[in-house]
């Protein structure tokens, strides 16, 4: 692939993604998004993008594979399983809310047309708890990451398949808001998500390799060595916002839910491989 071809594809991506809604459908956005990364990283097999920076960094990958031999997220999975199995005070369990569970991660996020909003897995879990008179969990870290980690583990191998119902314009609007969030500059440092994880993916910030956006949603929650703990996708969103010196939004607030809706849709077709371990 010549540099010129890559530039052309990149340009067409920017054009396609920036066309008015009526012209660029989410499906077209997704095609251009994925094609961008496939041409930027021609040596990465498509199914390897789920491994983030380790798909493009052989040295990092070796360390990561060593870490995966005794995964740091294992405790979270066990704790999450215990949560799943332990009845609430009223005798019911998560299974009563999620009859197909625990392997349900592939169903989220989804558009709830009755409520007119994006429903994510952590949100659904807390709503289940509240229906059963249990206290909701905090969204960034702790027990929420345990139970989502267990569900993610049980859901490994499911394929990302977010649907944007065409007969509800509000769903498309939520998607568009998420897309706008992704490409908007923000913070004192003036970066958009895309500046680092599309346009400069694969280059280095100091010695850190910027991971490609393609694959970002497949492996959450993650055990992050920097945190020394598990965290949810929205915890990571919030961390990224803080790094560009922007005020982070609330985990599970509308902004991040819409962002997750757009972003997970961009990753449609990739296998779920959470929970993950990251630096």
């Amino acid at each position: 692939m010549t540099k010129k071809t890559i530039t052309l594809i990149a340009a067409s991506l920017a054009c396609t993604l920036s066309l008015p809604t009526a012209l660029a459908t989410p499906e077209q956005d997704k095609e251009t998004f994925q094609a961008y990364f496939e041409s930027r990283f021609p040596n990465v097999p498509e199914d390897d993008f789920v491994n983030g920076a380790y798909a493009i960094d052989p040295v990092g990958r070796e360390n990561w594979e060593a870490i995966e031999e005794f995964p740091p997220y294992e405790t979270a999975i066990s704790k999450g399983e215990e949560m799943w199995e332990t009845p609430f005070e009223n005798g019911k369990t998560y299974k009563d809310c999620f009859p197909d569970g625990p392997a349900i991660a592939g169903k989220y996020p989804y558009w709830d047309r009755e409520r007119g909003m994006v429903i994510t897995l952590p949100l659904a879990i807390n709503e289940c708890r509240e229906e059963n008179k249990e206290k909701p969990l905090k969204y960034a870290k702790g027990p929420i990451a345990d139970i989502v980690g267990y569900i993610a583990y049980e859901s490994r191998g499911q394929v990302t398949n977010v649907e944007i119902p065409e007969d509800d314009p509000r769903a498309l609007e939520a998607y568009e808001r998420g897309k706008q969030f992704y490409f908007a500059r923000r913070g004192q440092l003036n970066f958009s998500c895309a500046h680092c994880h599309m346009g400069n993916s694969g280059t280095t910030l100091r010695t850190e390799i910027l991971s490609p956006a393609y694959g970002h949603t497949t492996h959450f929650p993650v055990y992050r060595s920097k945190w020394g703990a598990m965290g949810t996708l929205h915890r990571r969103f919030s961390g990224c916002n803080k790094q560009v010196r922007a005020k982070p939004f609330k985990p599970q607030g509308e902004e991040y839910r819409n962002l997750e809706f757009f972003f997970t849709y961009m990753n449609n077709g990739l296998e779920l491989n959470g929970p993950g371990a990251r630096k």
Binding site: A10, A11, L13, A14, C15, L17, S18, Q180, F183, A184, R185, S192, A194, H195, M198, G199, N200
Partner: peptide, 12 residues
């Protein structure tokens, strides 16, 4: 080094 998606941010 420019980031192509930056164009999008502009168009938004």
């Amino acid at each position: 080094r420019s980031s192509r998606p930056g164009l999008l941010a502009l168009s938004l």
